[in-house]
Amino acid sequence: MDPTPDPALAADVDTCCRLTGEFTLRSGQVSSEYFDKYLFEAQPALLARVAAQMVPLLPEDTELLGGLELGGIPIATMVSSRTGTPALFVRKQAKEYGTCKLAEGPDVAGRRVTLVEDVITTGGAVRDATKALREAGAVVEVVVCAIDRSPEGENPLADVGLEVRAVLTKAQLDAARG
């Protein structure tokens, strides 16, 4: 299931997107480091390498890839392109006009959705999306992410029964710095 760790990928992602300073995370936590995932997502070759490492992390029974707004969407699109698995684009909240959908794309009812996220620290956005998709009838059991910066050995989404599978962990990125 887990791909072999790629130290070169960790080094390249780290070099591209680790910022230092004072940053307030979505969770409200303040961090001296921030992984600006848009910096690697904007580089086609680096995004393709992350997506390639994500493919073997997908459960075999995945029917839809649920890319979370905004950072999970380009990754889900790239993984969808590599695997032929349809993508679904999950908003932070349902739009208030037109179709008023939370998830754009195929119907999720009764289907196995693997969530795709860029960076997970506490998992707040993933938790919200999981609850909403399950209410819509989706089966959501796994999230794959580019970077898991939660504390090593902890699953921040255990409370909602979600398995986290990461291409890179904070420990791997730290090790790549040397």
Rank of each mutant, 00 (worst) to 15 (best):
I147E: 06
A11G: 15
T99R: 14
V143C: 10
I120K: 00
T122Q: 04
V79T: 07
L115F: 07
T122M: 02
M1Q: 08
L58R: 00
P44Q: 12
S81H: 14
P86E: 04
P151I: 09
V164Y: 02
V160K: 00
G28C: 11
A109K: 13
T15Q: 12
V143I: 01
D118F: 06
G123D: 00
G161C: 08
D159I: 01
V116P: 03
C17E: 12
V30Y: 07
E135V: 05
A94M: 07
V144W: 01
K131Y: 03
E60I: 00
T85A: 07
A146N: 06
E60K: 10
L70W: 05
R149V: 05
R91F: 07
G98Y: 06
L9S: 08
G28N: 03
V55K: 02
L168V: 11
T169Q: 09
T122Y: 01
D6E: 13
C145E: 05
A171P: 09
D2P: 11
A171F: 03
S150C: 11
E117N: 08
L133P: 03
E163F: 03
F40S: 10
A171D: 12
P106K: 08
V90T: 10
G84I: 06
A176Q: 09
L70V: 15
P86S: 06
L64K: 06
G153A: 07
P151Y: 04
D107I: 14
F89I: 12
A129G: 07
V143T: 06
A146W: 09
A132R: 07
T77W: 05
